[in-house]
Amino acid sequence: MAVAPGWWRRAWDHDLAWSFRRSPVTIVAAALTLACVGGAAFAPWIAPHDPFDLARLSLNDAFSPPAWASGGNARYLLGTDDQGRDVLSTILHGARISLGVGLAAVAFSALLGVSLGLLSGYVGGRLDAFIMRVADIQLSFPAILIALLVDGVARVALPRETHDSIAIPVLIFSIGISGWVQYARTVRGSTLVEKNREYVQAARVIGRGRFAIMLHHVLPNVMGPVLVIGTIHVGTAIITEATLSFLGVGLPPTQPSLGTLIRVGNDFLFSGEWWITVFPGLALIVLVLSVNLLGDWLRDALNPKLR
């Protein structure tokens, strides 16, 4: 542990850490994000009930209002839904799925976008023109439309019984494929700048190949903006997933994400059981807002012009 203090000191002194400490909003956003991520990641262990254990569910407990409301049950802090599932527990499990799908979709988007952007910018010529025209065409369709399209194709192409089990990969793919353009464009732009810089020429002089230069020299220098886009994209991806699930083309009620929970609860909104939809909705807002605030801060902190 002899190195640890030095390492910690350097991290603490880093400009990023400093700008983080100076921004109360960011600290709150980070704490909320951490709470959401922690709650989601450890849902099976910290959730007070297991909402998917059919043996423990009792319809007698259905439509129990939040604990503090009249008729509330202290066992169910945020009340229960139509099946008698604990709303707090379904939110924690739902956030787990929402976050998982969001992160995986972002990772997929980023991988695809960064690779295509690097190739487009570094190789140039016809490949560049082709990739960028495809990007233009894709940009003219809203992300949700592309996701609906992919999802629809998957539904038709795959047998009904397998559909539920592959719902998550299909969602990740459809959300991911609709988001790569932003990464590709940003990376392409930075690559065009970096490839003419002298350190890239110096690598060419010693005879390094294109792919080695792209991977070892250009890539590390274009990743800053990708990190920022990625963070903000997590929020967007979660919203897209929630929208798809709300529309009924995302995750089935047997694997409910936050979006599914909101849709299911929506049916009861006007019959007075508001908590079934409001609490998952609040959770979604808090999660997305705090991730977005973190992303905004990261963008400003990494932008030398705003320092």
Binding site: Y199, Q201, A202, V205, I206, G207, H217, P220, N221
Partner: peptide, 21 residues
Amino acid sequence: SALRRRMQMIFQDPYASLNPR
């Protein structure tokens, strides 16, 4: 191309010719 190994280049801008990462 083997001959090229016998030559090297020094660039103008010392801020751009070294990979910052």
